[in-house]
Write a protein that binds this DNA or RNA. Structure first.
Length: 884
RNA sequence: GCGGACGUGGCGAAAUCGGUAGACGCUGGGGUCUUAAACACCCUUUCCUAUGGAGUACGGGUUCAAGUCCCGUCGUCCGCACCA
């Protein structure tokens, strides 16, 4: 065995794995299956350290499960539609398709050297017509099942780029590219009826035991269930057809504190009034300016306008209240209309104060004197700890929170005022995008037949290649021929839908497609039945809500249309959300205090007063020092210490970003140290769910460790066959313990701990004094235990030390339980809870005997000094505590 | 504002059942080897007024025993947010 040369062995073993096709997933009815999946990447063109960490984690699981005897599916694909491709085309010319497929080729080439155990034969990109054609086919099935519909919806419209913007693309009310003020526009869009599944998507979260609690909670909050009362106000002076006004409230217990009603600018009543009254029309137009995003709404001032319409309180027809149009009321939550109770709601209070509306308390805190003049009371926020009704539905009964709401609903229902309603925040999923680089929506607009789905035999409806991006708007709209077609129904000339689907659709079923990536139908029943569900899904927390919620919904929609079995409606059995790979940022500041970022290689750390101070190399050169000299003379260090402006600020653990100049390129790391080093390091330092900080010294240390293992392997290889040692028993026990501990750590997703245990075992092994046979057996086991993390060096060791076949195919080692039990244990002895001595006793010794030995101990005697023992606790195998 | 998570050496972290706090790694310090350095190897690295004492953000509590359980305070991070 020569030097450790990762480049050589990594290429060698990757070739061997390929030749033997050991990662091809095999539908083996005789073995249990295991499907491990990492969230597939967007083909931006370069892999980054986050990818390395994500895919290594999945690979550790995949390789471990394979060694455990599972038939493993571990595929890879590309989430390939989306705006960056169009932006690249607009900015640099070229075509989104060429850009995307070029990037895929580049990224695949960067990913392959990692040695991932991926079945590349199943690879696909969502922009492959073969894939999106099947997506169109399912869309048509879902249309037929009533899961898809069209409706007019308010969207962010960029008047310059002539396109709809996602909320994330509206910055300070302006389009992110055009910088034009975004308008709220009503457009007819395609929607999925995800809200029909609100209750089900919420309740099924309870069954996802192997999902992070945090993600389940985020989804539950997003779905946003609330219980309240929906009822109608009788109106006075409203236009024809608006005799009543429906409102929804989660606080019916404050109904007697109502002092106004308010409606959304998009409410039908507002629209009716708008037609009659120019002042109202102007106000409504004002409200529609600005985006629909959370920020836009939050920063907007609360505006209202009295419509002149009045409503009667449902409990007292004599009691009339004004109806306002208010810009903060959302049309698509509840009924788009509310009643305001300024005494107990911050926002209503603010509004009522601004427009001089009454404030009428319904309850007061228990601490407050009932006799105080009610009208002088400040407003009382929701959820005041302890409240007492002063006006209420249940007489004098003191009720708060959910109880009060339930009582109020019951009271109102009994009186015939409205009914209890469960509402959800979750809105239907708008999937229309006025974009080119997405899956075309497979429908046709016919003058005679209306909206008609395309015939399945015409699928895929492929994107035309000859499009231009020189003018704003949707290239499909202005394509000379593409949109002209014939009606699938009546054959008359008709117009193709030019909206494409939200890219979240593409990622909502790719996991199912991997089970049969080339099937002529969206899924293959036998394959999907064998491989689904995904046993372990791994990805970033940033997908905790949208991607995972859409996928959960889409799996149900696929089941409803016969594309997935019932068992797959929750497609991901276990979910793991991994942390980021971070890296230090180096910066100095300009005269105005703005940061200037520096590359790590432009910074050098020099020892000043026992601390390593980072300084700019260019400034070292300025004071005539060689920035790369190994030693810097003391007098120069003194000079540096006086020049505060030479010193570089360090921000640890920052997200890698090009503009901050702290990106570490995996390609460079693999070239310098090899894939095994990159893989080991990203798994080693932090728990997988936490961020891990990339450090150059850590990477070097990892590489050195692997080289030490290599040298150790060579040394064991050189041992004479008949060498005897004293320590066989000790080594065999250490090996068993290593197997046990590493296995437990991997099972528990604690890869950092698995690696710590491997360090420990390696140290033990390199110091062991054992026979050649025992040493060889131990290092073979080490290779097997390292294999999920560092598969290439593991194969080399395995083959050198006489392992059978490929290490990747060897069954996972098992620890003999008898070897895990220690003969003797060291017990600490506490006196009054402080550790004072320790004794070595046989592990199986009875507590009474342990007691005797403990009390006989010299140190114990010294500390006891004849005091009376009040109590003596012996926890077998753990500790002895003497209380005096 | 609502909801949640977390707080342990110079740093990343262990301590999954309440039972020796700091495993393992990084950094720093010292040493062996060398003409010298690199490499490699060895020792050392929680703090202090140090044969002992203190210590897991802070203040209380439960317990023979608390990083771990309970109550309160402070801090950091994350998600959601005109949601009626």
């Amino acid at each position: 065995m020569s030097r450790y040369e990762p480049a050589v062995i990594e290429a060698k073993w990757q070739k061997a794995w390929d030749a033997a096709q050991i990662f091809a997933a095999w539908h083996d009815p005789l073995r249990p299956k295991y499907y491990v999946l990492e969230m597939f990447p967007y083909p931006s063109g370069r892999i980054h350290m986050g990818h390395v960490r994500n895919y290594t984690m999945g690979d550790v699981v995949a390789r471990y499960k394979a060694a455990q005897g599972f038939s493993v599916l571990h595929p890879m694909g590309w989430d390939a539609f989306g705006m960056p491709a169009e932006n690249a085309a607009m900015e640099r010319g070229g075509h989104p398709r060429d850009w995307t497929y070029g990037n895929i080729a580049d990224m695949r080439a960067q990913m392959k050297p990692l040695g991932l155990s991926i079945d590349w034969s199943r690879e696909f990109a969502t922009c492959d017509p073969e894939y999106y054609g099947q997506q169109q086919s399912m869309f048509i099935d879902m249309m037929a099942s009533g899961l898809v519909y069209r409706k007019a919806a308010v969207v962010n419209w960029d008047p310059v780029d002539m396109t709809v913007l996602a909320n994330e693309q509206v910055i300070d009310g302006k389009g992110w590219r055009s910088n034009a003020t975004v308008e709220r526009r009503e457009l007819t869009q395609w929607f999925f009826k995800i809200s029909d599944y609100s209750a089900e998507l919420l309740s099924a979260l309870d069954g996802l035991k192997d999902w992070p609690e945090k993600v389940r909670l985020m989804q539950a909050n997003w779905i946003g269930q609330s219980r309240g009362l929906q009822f109608a106000f009788a109106t006075v002076g409203a236009p024809a057809g608006f005799d009543t006004l429906e409102v929804y409230t989660t606080r019916p217990d404050t109904l007697l504190g109502a002092s106004f009603a308010a409606i959304s600018p998009d409410h039908p009543l507002a629209k009716a009034l708008e037609a009659e009254d120019p002042a109202i029309a102007a106000f409504v137009a004002e409200c529609r300016k600005g985006g629909t995003s959370a920020e836009a709404l939050e920063t907007a001032e609360k505006l209202g306008m009295d419509t002149g319409v009045r409503v009667r309180h449902p409990m007292d027809p004599e009691w009339e209240m004004p109806v306002y149009i208010a810009n903060f009321i959302l049309m698509d939550y509840g009924t788009g209309a509310i009643f305001g109770c300024p005494a107990h709601d911050t926002r209503d209070h603010e509004f009522a104060s601004k427009y001089g509306l009454g404030i009428k308390p319904v309850f007061i805190p228990e601490s407050q004197d009932f006799a105080t003049e009610l009208m002088d009371l400040p407003w009382i926020p929701y959820k005041t700890e302890s409240v007492r009704y002063i006006l209420g539905f249940a007489g004098e009964a003191v009720q708060t929170g959910e109880e009060a709401v339930a009582a109020a609903i019951a009271f109102c229902e009994a009186k015939g005022i409205g009914r209890g309603v469960t509402n959800y925040r979750l809105r239907d999923w708008g999937i229309s995008r006025q974009r080119y680089w997405g899956c075309p929506i497979p429908v046709v607009h016919c003058e005679a037949c209306g909206v008609v789905p395309e015939k399945k035999e015409n699928l895929p409806i492929e994107l035309p290649y000859d499009v231009t991006f020189d003018i704003p708007g949707n290239p499909l709209d202005r394509h000379p021929t593409w949109r002209h077609t014939t009606c699938p129904n009546c054959n008359a000339p008709a117009r193709r839908e030019t909206d494409t689907m939200d890219t979240f659709m593409d990622s909502s079923w790719y996991f199912a497609r991997f089970t049969a990536p080339h099937a002529k139908t969206p899924t293959d029943a036998a394959e999907v039945d064998y491989w689904m569900n995904v046993d372990q899904y791994i990805g970033g927390i940033e997908h905790a809500i949208l991607h995972l919620l859409y996928s959960r919904f889409f799996a149900r929609a696929m089941h409803a249309t016969g594309h997935l079995p019932a068992k797959a409606i929750e497609p991901f059995n276990a979910l793991f959300t991994q942390g980021m790979v971070t890296h230090e940022i180096y910066l100095t500041r300009d005269a105005n205090g703005r940061p200037i970022y520096h590359l790590p290689e432009d910074v050098r750390k020099v020892p000043i007063d026992g601390n390593l101070v980072p300084v700019l190399k260019s400034r070292l050169a300025d004071i005539n020092l060689d920035p790369d000299a190994t030693e810097i003379p003391d007098d120069a260090l003194q000079a540096i210490s006086l020049l505060a402006d030479m010193q570089v600020e360090v921000i640890p653990s920052a997200k890698m970003s090009k503009s901050k100049k702290n990106v570490v390129d995996p390609v460079n790391i693999i070239a310098a140290f090899g894939a095994d080093t990159a893989r080991w390091f990203v798994m080693s330092d932090s728990p997988p769910e936490r961020d891990v900080e990339w450090t150059a010294s850590g990477a070097e240390a990892t590489h050195k460790h692997l080289a030490r293992v290599w040298t150790l392997c060579a040394r064991i290889g050189d041992m004479p066959g008949d060498h005897k040692g004293e320590g066989d028993d000790v080594l065999i026990r250490a090996t068993a313990r290593a197997i046990h501990e590493v296995t437990e750590a991997i099972e528990g997703f604690a890869f950092n701990k698995a690696i710590a245990k491997l360090y420990e075992f390696t140290n033990t092994l390199s110091k062991a004094n054992a026979s050649t046979g025992a040493m060889k057996a131990a290092i073979r086991t080490l290779a097997q235990l390292m294999q999920p993390m560092t598969p290439h060096i593991a194969e080399s060791i395995w083959s050198v030390q006489g392992g059978n076949g490929l290490c990747a195919l060897a069954p996972w080692p098992k620890a003999d339980p008898a070897l895990l039990v220690e003969d003797t244990v060291t017990l600490p002895i506490q006196i009054n809870g402080k550790r004072r001595a320790e004794i070595n006793v046989p592990a199986q010794m009875s507590p009474t005997e342990v007691e005797k030995i403990a009390l006989a101990n010299e140190d114990v005697q010294k500390f006891l000094a004849g005091a009376t023992i009040k109590k003596l606790i012996v926890v077998p195998g753990r500790i002895v505590n003497v209380v005096v």
